[in-house]
Design a protein around this nucleic acid. Structure first.
Length: 191
DNA sequence: GGACCCAGAATAA
DNA sequence: TTATTCTGGGTCC
């Protein structure tokens, strides 16, 4: 049984939480409409991968709130990737390269990786590090916002949250649709 | 292996 | 523009 620390924070109505391992690597993060939901979600995740969370305070949730507000983190975050598949890691590596203020589509990522859009959708949906890995920057082929899961729950609240996040990152949005100018292609820009 | 899942894409109207 | 159909690939048992 691995030991993790669970730190949580409240910012306005929103609850934030981070699961961190003994080496100070981020195992998972979550945010949602209440602290209770976030705690339950992370406790459940921890159980799934065979860990035991101990509550503590860590400044990492402050970094999370910065990201939520469309700001940058103040230090490098290292991730514990032990519990995600190889394919997921490939997808997340692409997500991390999406510049702030830009978006890409499931189809573009799948073409870049030689995979299928729905498979990418599945991988993005199971992103353990929302906000730290910017899964909100992936939208539908037709540039509508698409879905966003809050603690694993899909629904209108997720889409509203996703749009708000993108707006704070200064992604141009015209009537529920991303401006074409903001589209970034993983195959064209190999920084 | 095989069944089932997916936060998509393409097509038709 | 919406509704329907078709996908391929990943994951879990």
């Amino acid at each position: 049984m691995e030991r993790f620390t669970l730190s949580t924070d409240q910012y306005g109505e929103i609850g934030f939480g981070c699961l961190v391992d003994a080496e100070n690597r981020l195992v998972a993060s979550a945010f949602g409409p209440s602290l209770k939901i976030v705690k339950a979600h992370l406790a459940n995740y921890s159980k799934k991968i065979g860990g035991e969370p101990m509550p503590t305070d860590r400044p990492i949730t402050h970094e999370m709130i910065r990201l939520y507000n469309g700001e940058d983190v103040t230090r490098a975050i290292s991730f514990n990737t032990d519990h995600v598949s190889k394919f997921q890691r490939q997808v997340y590596r692409v997500l991390e390269r999406i510049p702030k203020g830009k978006v890409t589509t499931y189809g573009r990522i799948s073409k870049h990786l030689g995979s299928a859009p729905r498979a990418v959708g599945g991988a993005v949906a199971s992103n353990p590090w929302p906000l730290f890995v910017p899964c909100e920057r992936v939208v539908n082929f037709d540039l509508t916002i698409g879905n966003y899961g809050l603690c694993g729950n899909l629904g209108p609240a997720g889409t509203i949250t996703k749009q708000a996040l993108l707006e704070r990152e200064r992604v141009p949005i015209l009537e529920n649709r991303i401006d074409k100018k903001a589209v970034w292609d993983p195959s064209r820009d190999n920084r």
